[in-house]
C-alpha cells in the first residue's frame, strides 16, 4: 500500500515536470512558427491581391509545410472577402487550382469544432458536388454550430431546403431557439414569401410561428397584411406579440383597428408591441388607445407607450401632457 502511494506520487510529479518542460519547448517552437506565419501573410496577401486585380500572373506559392498551408488558407479567405465580381471569381478559381477547396473540405470533417466551422463557412465560395457532399456530411454532426454552419453554407450555395424543410430541420435538431437559425429562416422568408405563407397554414410550434410572423412583417409585402392580422388572434401570446411587431415593421396602416384592440390584450408583451407599432406607423387616430397604457402595471409598456405618443407628433405630446400627473421615477 505504502509503495503504491509513493509510486503514485512519483509518477504524478514526473508527469507534471514533463508537462512543464514540454509546455516550454512547445512554446518556443510555436513562437518560431508564428514568426514564420506573420512574415508569410503580408507577402501572400500582396501577391493574391495583385493577381486578382490582373496586375500579375498566378504567383508561385509554396504549400508543402503546414504553416505555409495555414497561412495561405487564412490569407486567401480574408482577401477573397474583400472582393466582388470578376476579381473574386478569378481569385477563387486560382485558389481552387491551388487545392484550397480540398484542404477546406478535409478541415470541414475534422474533430476541432472551430476549424470545422471556419472551413464550412469558407466552402460556400467553392460550389460543386464535392462541396455539397461535404456540407451534407457535416450536417450529420451532433454539434449544433457545425450543423448550422453547414446548413447555412448550403443555403448560400442555393441548394438549401425550403422553409418547410428548414423548420422541420430546426425542430428535429433543437436549433429552433438559436438566433442564427432564426435569422436563416427569416432570410428565406424575405426572399420566398409564398413558402412562408404556405408554412403558416400548417401546424407549427408557437415560437416558430412567431418567427415566421415577425419575418413576414419585415418583407414589407401587402400579401403579409392579412396573415399578420389573423395572427393577432392566435392563442399564444408570443405569436400575437410577434404579429403586432410585424405589423409595425410592415409599414401599412391597414391594421390600425386590430392594433388598437391589441393594446387591450391580456399579455403585456402584446400591449407593448402594439404600442410600438402604433408609434412606428404614426397612427395618430389611435393615440387615445395609448393613453390608458401610460398607467399599465408593467413599466416597459408605460415606457413604450410614452415613446409611441411622442412619435405621433403634437397630438401625442398633448395626450401625454394631459395624462402626466406628479413626477414619479417610474411614470
Amino acid at each position: 500500500m505504502l509503495s503504491l502511494v509513493w509510486l503514485t506520487s512519483l509518477a504524478l510529479m514526473c508527469a507534471s515536470m514533463s508537462v512543464l518542460a514540454a509546455l516550454i519547448i512547445a512554446r518556443l517552437h510555436r513562437d518560431h512558427v508564428e514568426r514564420v506565419r506573420l512574415t508569410l501573410r503580408p507577402k501572400l496577401a500582396r501577391a493574391l491581391m495583385r493577381f486578382a486585380a490582373g496586375q500579375q500572373e498566378a504567383p508561385k506559392i509554396r504549400i508543402e509545410r503546414r504553416v505555409e498551408r495555414e497561412a495561405l488558407v487564412e490569407t486567401a479567405l480574408d482577401t477573397v472577402q474583400l472582393m466582388q465580381g470578376g476579381t473574386k471569381e478569378r481569385l477563387v478559381a486560382y485558389l481552387r487550382a491551388l487545392g484550397i477547396d480540398a484542404i477546406l473540405r478535409r478541415q470541414a470533417l475534422c474533430r476541432n469544432v472551430r476549424k470545422r466551422v471556419q472551413a464550412l463557412e469558407a466552402l460556400s465560395l467553392f460550389p460543386g458536388e464535392k462541396t455539397i457532399d461535404v456540407l451534407q456530411r457535416a450536417e450529420a454532426s451532433r454539434d449544433l454550430r457545425v450543423w448550422l454552419t453547414a446548413l447555412r453554407a448550403r443555403c448560400a450555395l442555393g441548394v438549401g431546403p425550403d422553409i418547410a424543410g428548414l423548420i422541420e430541420a430546426s425542430e428535429r435538431t433543437g436549433a429552433r431557439r438559436s438566433s442564427a437559425m432564426q435569422e436563416l429562416i427569416a432570410e428565406r422568408v424575405r426572399t420566398h414569401l409564398n413558402e412562408a405563407l404556405a408554412a403558416l397554414r400548417t401546424p407549427l410550434q408557437p415560437l416558430t410561428r412567431a418567427l415566421l410572423v415577425r419575418a413576414l412583417g419585415e418583407t414589407g409585402s401587402r400579401h403579409a397584411l392579412d396573415p399578420l392580422r389573423l395572427a393577432l388572434h392566435n392563442p399564444d401570446p408570443a405569436v400575437r406579440a410577434a404579429a403586432a411587431g410585424g405589423l409595425g415593421a410592415l409599414g401599412f396602416d391597414g391594421a390600425a383597428d386590430a392594433l388598437a384592440r391589441a393594446t387591450r390584450d391580456s399579455d403585456w408583451r402584446v400591449r407593448l408591441r402594439a404600442a410600438e407599432a402604433i408609434g412606428q406607423l404614426h397612427l395618430w387616430r389611435q393615440a387615445e388607445h395609448l393613453t390608458p397604457l401610460l398607467s399599465d402595471p408593467v413599466w416597459w409598456v408605460r415606457y413604450r407607450a410614452e415613446e409611441a405618443l411622442k412619435r405621433l407628433g403634437d397630438l401625442g405630446v398633448k395626450q401625454l401632457a394631459r395624462a402626466s400627473g406628479p413626477t414619479r421615477p417610474d411614470a
Partner: peptide, 22 residues
C-alpha cells in the same frame, strides 16, 4: 507518503490547468 501524494496531486492539478491555458 501522505504529504508526498497530497503535494503531487496539487502540483498535477496546477500544472494541468496551466497546460490547458497554454
Amino acid at each position: 507518503a501522505f504529504l508526498a501524494v497530497t503535494f503531487a496531486l496539487g502540483v498535477a492539478v496546477s500544472v494541468g490547468s496551466l497546460a490547458i491555458e497554454e
